[in-house]
């Protein structure tokens, strides 16, 4: 991750803490998956290098297509390959996939139930390159499209396992991509990512943290710090945004006294909104604080600085949990 005070242009890593890192887990997993089968193709739109798909390209050059800076065509060509019997894995940044190619994802992929597997880089605040590159509202946009599966993996293990999971799924998927050096939070021998499944990582009542994507790693670390201060917490990890397991949220909420949602995304339209919908429909009411990007575009800067400013660091999460004024408002 970038040094505080300095914006990095491209190629930033997500990894921050002491956990072991995996380099390019997506591309390596895709290359391995494609080794034993010839129905996997890969595509990118002049961002192969920065979306970790190079291991696939190098292993299977005849099955990789770079369409250049043309995201609508990236999705259209992928849909055409899918309609020819291939599982089309395509990569670009989340901002370009969702904002520029939205109609193509909605119609050519989702409406057609085409086997297009989008992996979208730079989700939320994983780049300091400003509003043009930070996909801060992609989950909200994607989760409203019928028949589209939407995934926000937490770590290298879930990235690796989601490659096989979306390949096994019959239909289009949108997954957020964590690129470069990605921390391994979950033990691959014990954790099994499944589309649509919610994971209870901690169940001690008290403050219930419902998180998705890379924010789950921070929720785990925040919970440890809060435990040291005598605050009991529970954690529900929800890597699948659609289909969303509202029942798991309701069941989890019944066992806690207050709720904090944590997402690497604007706080409206994504996980926080989904949790609010789930709880309202289940007639469960708890004081709730939503941690995530506020309803505004974020400037250029270093990631530690920007994530701190938006309240998304472990320290800020702990402080939010302890901030009595914030909970009285909730």
């Amino acid at each position: 991750m970038s040094e505080r005070g300095k914006t990095l242009a491209m190629g930033e890593n997500v990894a921050t803490g002491p956990r072991p890192n995996v380099e390019a887990p997506f591309g390596k997993a895709l290359a391995a998956l494609a080794r034993g089968r010839n129905d996997i193709v890969g595509l990118s739109a002049d961002l192969a290098k920065y979306t970790d798909i190079l291991p696939f390209r190098d292993a299977h050059p005849d099955r990789f297509f770079n369409v250049g800076m043309a995201e609508q065509n990236l999705i259209g060509v992928s849909a055409g390959l899918a309609k020819s019997g291939f599982k089309a894995f395509c990569t670009t940044y989340g901002v370009f996939a969702t904002r520029r190619a939205y109609d193509f994802i909605a119609i050519a992929c989702a409406h057609s139930k085409a086997d297009v597997k989008i992996f979208a880089g730079l989700p939320g605040l994983t780049t300091g390159y400003g509003g043009t590159h930070q996909a801060i509202e992609d989950l909200a946009l994607m989760r409203m499209i019928p028949d589209l599966v939407v995934i926000d993996p937490c770590d290298a293990t879930e990235i690796e396992q989601s490659v096989a999971a979306v390949a096994a799924h019959d239909g289009p998927t949108y997954a957020r991509l964590l690129r470069g050096l990605v921390p391994r939070v979950f033990d691959p021998a014990k954790h099994r990512f499944e589309i649509g499944r919610a994971y209870t990582l901690r169940a001690q009542g008290g403050l219930g943290m419902i998180s998705t994507g890379m924010m789950t790693e921070r929720a785990i670390d925040a919970a440890e710090q809060l435990a040291a201060k005598g605050i009991e917490t529970s954690i529900l990890h929800m890597p699948t945004i659609k289909p969303f397991d509202a029942k798991a949220v309701a069941d989890f909420a019944r066992g806690v006294t207050r709720i904090m949602t944590l997402e690497n995304h604007v706080v409206s339209g994504g996980l926080g909104t989904l949790v609010a919908e789930a709880l309202y429909e289940a007639c469960i009411f708890r004081p709730t604080v939503r941690v995530g990007i506020p309803d505004r575009f974020v400037e250029c800067g270093s990631l530690p600085y920007l994530q701190d400013k938006c309240g998304m660091t472990v320290e800020r999460i702990v402080a939010a949990a302890l901030d009595g004024a914030r909970w009285r408002q909730a």
């Binding site: 060509v77 849909a79 055409g80 020819s84 109609d103």
Partner: peptide, 16 residues
């Protein structure tokens, strides 16, 4: 939407 998907289909048939 038509031409892009047709390009994908043409690539697909060539691969096959």
């Amino acid at each position: 939407h038509g031409l892009g998907q047709a390009v994908g289909m043409a690539l697909g048939q060539r691969l096959r």
